[in-house]
Simulated scan of single mutants.
Amino acid sequence: MNIENQVLGLIKLSSYIKAFLAKKPESYNEDDVNIELLLKKSEIENPWFTVDNQKFALQQWADLLTEENIKNWLENYTISKISKRIGLILAGNIPLVGFHDVISVVVSNHIPVIKLSSKDKYLIPFLLNKWNGFSENRIKFEFVEKLENLDAVIATGSNNTARYLEYYFKNHLNIIRKNRTSIAVLKGDETDEELQLLAHDIFQYFGLGCRNVTRIFIPKDFLIDRLFENFLGFKDIINHHKYANNYDYNRAIYLLNQEKFWDNNFVMLKEDNKLFSPLSVINFSRYESLDDVRNFIEENEENIQCVVAKSVLGLNSISFGEAQNPGLDTYADNVDTMKFLELV
């Protein structure tokens, strides 16, 4: 079957990425040098996409795309016998954020018609072409500037953009995604190791992803210093000029407005009930009862991507350090893309 060949190609792609990432620059062959140049070109055009962050994203996908993981994922779905054209409007906030949609469409036996984000326009075409080379049957895909002649649409954008997309594609089957962010809930007895893992959930990709934590709930007597102490592993983030610009701007605004905040010279903590926080700022609030937290989650369900917390709190959460490690069956906005593609 065509899909079986494409799955084999995907597994080979995973091995190819792992082999590249395991090498040191001095042992690069010509192909490896070209990949490194591609990553550097991407960083030059979009400084948020550092080579390290792009390699982190590649490593996550390489680890995820094993034969066992793909088999366990796909066995829950019926693969379409008729290929349809699925329009994809991809986000570009973090590297490869749209790759899951692309893979889902291809392994559903449909044709992805892809409008790339201008911020992430190199890695996905590169991986698709490599995947094609590893597959016995060629994968059909298109890169376009304007989406036309579609059977369905999956689009990701800001809340403002989503309104236009919902209107524009009102006559198509669609998934239109909006802004989301993530929260963490501390019980109070977290180890330093757990708080250091939480730092990854906050700072990976500079905090630009919907799975990055921007709001923390802490018990009444929790010491703020413990957070700062365990965030120090990311202190070099302030050396990135775009992040530093955000930090300087937000700090200046708080000082001018005489607002209270805690600062450790690379991130600020602000006692604020808002779910979303500016880049370089983490909102926090103290809770007396977990019921208050549950009520907040329920009221903001449409805006929360994931909850990071200990499982004993019973908040349908993921473990510390796992926010940027979603599985193949973890879907943006909790809308099952594969089930959607079965209906097309």
Score class of each variant (00 low, 15 high):
Ile3Ala: 02
Gln6Tyr: 09
Leu10Ser: 09
Leu10His: 14
Leu10Met: 11
Tyr16Val: 02
Ile17Gln: 11
Lys18Ile: 12
Phe20Thr: 02
Pro25Trp: 15
Pro25Ala: 07
Tyr28Val: 07
Glu30Lys: 10
Val33Tyr: 01
Asn34Gln: 05
Ile35His: 10
Leu38Glu: 01
Lys40Gly: 10
Lys40His: 12
Lys41Gln: 04
Asn46Asp: 05
Asn46Thr: 09
Trp48His: 01
Val51Lys: 15
Asp52Cys: 08
Lys55Trp: 14
Ala57Arg: 14
Leu64Glu: 02
Leu65Cys: 05
Asn69Phe: 13
Asn72Arg: 07
Asn72Gly: 04
Trp73Ser: 08
Trp73Lys: 09
Leu74Tyr: 14
Asn76Tyr: 12
Asn76Lys: 14
Ile79Asn: 04
Lys84Ala: 01
Ile86Gly: 10
Ile89Tyr: 05
Val97Lys: 08
Val97Ser: 01
Gly98Val: 00
Ser104Val: 07
Ser104Trp: 14
Ser108Val: 07
Ile111Asn: 15
Val113Ile: 15
Ile114Leu: 12
Lys115Glu: 05
Lys115Thr: 01
Ser117Tyr: 06
Lys119Arg: 06
Leu128Thr: 01
Asn132Ser: 05
Glu136Gln: 14
Lys140Ser: 03
Phe141Gly: 04
Phe141Trp: 15
Glu142Phe: 13
Phe143Ile: 12
Phe143Ser: 06
Val144Trp: 13
Lys146His: 03
Asn149Cys: 08
Ala155Val: 10
Arg163Met: 01
Tyr164Asp: 08
Tyr167Leu: 06
Tyr168Gly: 03
Lys170Ile: 04
Lys170Met: 05
His172Arg: 13
Leu173Thr: 06
Asn174Phe: 12
Arg177Ile: 00
Thr181Lys: 13
Lys187Leu: 08
Lys187Gln: 12
Thr191Phe: 10
Thr191Ile: 05
Gln196Pro: 15
Gln196Arg: 15
Leu198Ser: 13
Gly207Ile: 01
Gly209Asp: 12
Cys210Ile: 00
Val213Ile: 09
Val213Tyr: 04
Phe222Thr: 01
Phe222Met: 06
Ile224Lys: 11
Glu229Asp: 13
Glu229Tyr: 12
Asp236Phe: 00
Asn239Arg: 08
Asn239Ser: 06
His240Gly: 00
His241Arg: 08
His241Gly: 03
Ala244Gly: 02
Asn246Phe: 08
Arg251Lys: 12
Ala252Asn: 14
Asn257Thr: 03
Trp262Met: 02
Met268Val: 02
Leu269Glu: 01
Asn273Trp: 09
Lys274His: 03
Phe276Pro: 03
Phe276His: 02
Ser277His: 06
Ser277Ala: 10
Ser277Arg: 07
Leu279Lys: 00
Val281Arg: 01
Ile282Gly: 00
Ile282Gln: 07
Arg286Tyr: 01
Glu288Asp: 07
Ser289Phe: 07
Leu290Gln: 08
Asp291Ile: 01
Asp291Tyr: 04
Val293Ile: 07
Glu298Lys: 05
Asn300His: 08
Cys306Pro: 11
Cys306Ser: 02
Val307Leu: 04
Val308Ser: 05
Lys310Gly: 02
Leu315Asn: 11
Ser319Leu: 08
Phe320Val: 07
Phe320Asp: 13
Gly321Ser: 03
Glu322Leu: 09
Leu328Trp: 04
Asp329Pro: 15
Thr330Gln: 15
Ala332Leu: 03
Ala332Phe: 07
Asn334Leu: 05
Thr337Phe: 03
Leu343Gly: 04
